[in-house]
Structures are given as structure tokens and as C-alpha cells.
Amino acid sequence: MARGGQTRMPLLEVRDLHLDYQAGDRVVHAVDGVSFTIARRGEALGIVGESGSGKSSLANALIRLLPKNAIRYDGAILLDGRDLMALSDEAFRREIRWRRMAMVFQGAMNVLNPVLKIGDQIAEPMLLDERLNKRQARAKVESLLERVGLGREFYGRYPHELSGGQKQRVVIATALALDPDLLILDEPTSALDVSVQAQIMNLLKDLKADPGISMIFITHDIGLASDLCDEIAVAYAGEFVETGPADRILVAPRHPYTALLLASLPRLHGDRPPSPMPGEPPDPTHLPEGCRFHPRCPWRFAPCLRHPPEIPVEGGGFARCWLNDPAVAGDRFGAPLLVAAATP
């Protein structure tokens, strides 16, 4: 593909993105000043967080599908250096959504149209786009069906004839219909069991390598994110609390929430029992003062009553935790975040 050939300019740059909702007489800061970049083609960013952390809202904000109660939507979203915020809704729909950035919605495999052949469903965005005629669209759908591992004979089948994994492949093929540069995937495997999940992850790894699609992969499972993604961002209460290369985050997390997330995963090998995450996620309409994680944090200390900035950490990325600022943390600075093993 010819697009996005510039060097040095990141494919996607997001700066200080905000999305607020009106919830009754209160305001929810669903996306609260999030910044990140996807530097090059074929790079995958994993966004990890619990329910209510704002990770799905962030996806909706990127692709500009906002709920009616959205009351603030600002910041900068630069795609190949072009500020998408300057585009009208109509121009965004025509030029960006689905053509440059496509999305695989959570649970999309369950809302395929039951009375439409799957080939015709995949062709729909192509025909709306009006660049291909029906015959060309059909040929393209057949090649997409092969690309996602289904085979062209699936064109005439109906959703009820397909397994869950096959339906998810159809959804991915639909997202690829207009050759996007960036694919946003919201929990694409959460309804699938481990083996089918592994097959879908294999497909995503292939698409990332060739044709080099960049991805934003949203999940609550940090293990799954690390399987596909080069960079990981951990979302908590509307913010990114830690970002960095997956290789660094897995072995040296610098935010207590990330360390606890990793410790809560049952490991296949070794008998160290997983440790439960303490506390409950905060009420989005009543966020704690200062560090939003501090009421649940085993490492909290006096400075946590002030809201920490994004503090750069060794090995790449940042952590929104005062433990990473030597001037604030004192002799706590740089100590590894060891989570006590749970009592069996």
C-alpha cells in the first residue's frame, strides 16, 4: 500500500484527548487527558484496564462515535500529521472512518445480520464507498475471506452456519474492507475459548506483519495484550497510568496497578498462586483526589494525595506514580514493586 510512506512522522499521534459524559447531574471523565503515539506501520498498542477504566470510550473517541450525552470532546488526533479534530463529521465519515481507521466492536460477532449472506455484509462498506462496482467488490470480499482464513466458499453462507471463531473472522474481514491503516479492536476474543482465541490472535499477528496493519488492541487481559502488542498502555479511571514497551512492562512494571494486574494472572508454570487485586474500581462520578489508584494501593504514601504527572521511567514509557520521582520518593525511589504472594 502506498499510504503512510513518510518517515519519522508517526502514523497516529494523540495528545491530551478528553471525552466527558453527562451522567445525571454529574460528569464522568471517561477519557481524561490521554496522549500516545503509534510510531510506525505494523505497530500494535495494547490498552489494558478493568471495566469502567475508559478503554472502550477511548476507542469511540478515536473513531468519533460519541454517545448523545458526550459534553466534552477535545484534544488532538493526528493521523499522518493531519489533525482529525479539524474535520467535519461528514468529512470524518467519508475520509477517515473505515477507510483509514476501522474498528472491531466488542460483541460485533453477535450482531451480524442473520438474513444476509456474510459476503454481502463484508461488501457493504465497499459499495457505500462507491469506488468499486459489485463485481470488483465480490472479488475483493473473496480475497479478504481467504486472508482471514475462511476461504471464498464462505461468501454465500449465513451467520448461523458459522462458529464463534468464524464469525469473528468475518467481523475482522469487514473491518479490513477498505484497507485501513489502523485497526481498533475492542475485546475481540473475550467471548471465545482459549484455542479459538489463539487462532484469532494468530490471524492478528499475520495481519500486523503483512500487510502491516497497525492496531490498537483493547482488553482486560494484560497477558493477551502482551502476546500481540509492542507497546502497552494501562488505563485506570480515564487516564493512562503506565505506558511502555511490553517487554519492559512485563518484567519491570513501574506503576503499582500494573504490578498488581500482572500478579493477578494465574501463571501456567510455577506454583506461585495469583494474588487478588485489592479493592474495587472507583466510582467514575466520584474519583479519589490525588492519585486515583491510591485508595487501593499497598505502596501509598503521603505524596499520593497530589495527582501525579506522567513520570518517564527507565526502559521506556512513563508511570503516573510518585515512586518514580526521586525528589518525591526519596529512598523508595526505584524499588521493585513486589506483590506479596497470596496465602493459598
Binding site: V194, A198, K205, S226, D227, L228, V251, L262
Partner: peptide, 17 residues
């Protein structure tokens, strides 16, 4: 083999399923 363990050595592998 299908389990995505959060281990740097285990990443990006195609899983036999």
C-alpha cells in the same frame, strides 16, 4: 500452548491450535 502467558520469551509466537 494456546495460553498467552505474560512472559517476554513467550510473545509473538504463533500458537499451534
Amino acid at each position: 500452548a494456546a495460553v498467552p502467558e505474560p512472559d517476554p520469551a513467550n510473545r509473538f509466537r504463533r500458537r499451534a491450535v
